[in-house]
């Protein structure tokens, strides 16, 4: 599984990457612009990501806009619903507006920080991202 983590906060990034690297190859970027770059490059190289974790408050381009850009791009290329990249928003913003907005834009899950890893795993399993389902 290819995973991209976009997160500007160092401890969060490290924590997430350490946790997720058990389940796949993790790439890390520190802002939204880089996230988009990484996403486009991965498609060009035909090695696209299975999971993208987006922080919302990031420099340059925020996570919500990245999400929107990704979904727009997918729509333009005519990617079918079930083939779309899975996106999990990971953020300390917990307002219902943010959650609703992100869901409307089409993220798969919204995780409030501090992240509950057990529940995260559960969701990954439900999204069908785990090759070896956790015990």
């Amino acid at each position: 599984m290819n995973i991209l983590i976009a997160e500007d906060d160092m401890p969060s990034r490290k924590f997430l990457s350490k946790f997720l690297s058990q389940y796949g190859d993790v790439d890390m970027v520190v802002d939204g612009l880089e996230a988009l770059d990484a996403y486009l490059i991965s498609i060009k190289e035909n090695n696209s990501y299975d999971l993208i974790c987006l922080d919302i408050m990031m420099p340059k381009v925020d996570g919500v806009r990245v999400l929107k850009a990704i979904r727009d791009y997918e729509a333009k290329r005519g990617v079918p619903q079930d083939k779309r990249v899975k996106v999990i928003m990971t953020t300390a913003l917990e307002g219902t507006d943010f959650v609703k907005n992100s869901f409307e834009l089409g993220c798969e899950a919204y995780a409030a920080k501090p992240i509950d890893t057990q529940k995260l795993l559960e969701v990954l399993e439900k999204l069908g991202l785990l090759e070896f389902p956790s015990q």
């Binding site: 798969e108 899950a109 919204y110 409030a112 501090p114 992240i115 057990q118 529940k119 439900k126």
Partner: peptide
């Protein structure tokens, strides 16, 4: 199709 992961509790 969509999930909300609530914050982990302090004990974690």
């Amino acid at each position: 199709q969509q999930f909300y992961i609530s914050k982990s509790k302090q004990s974690g």
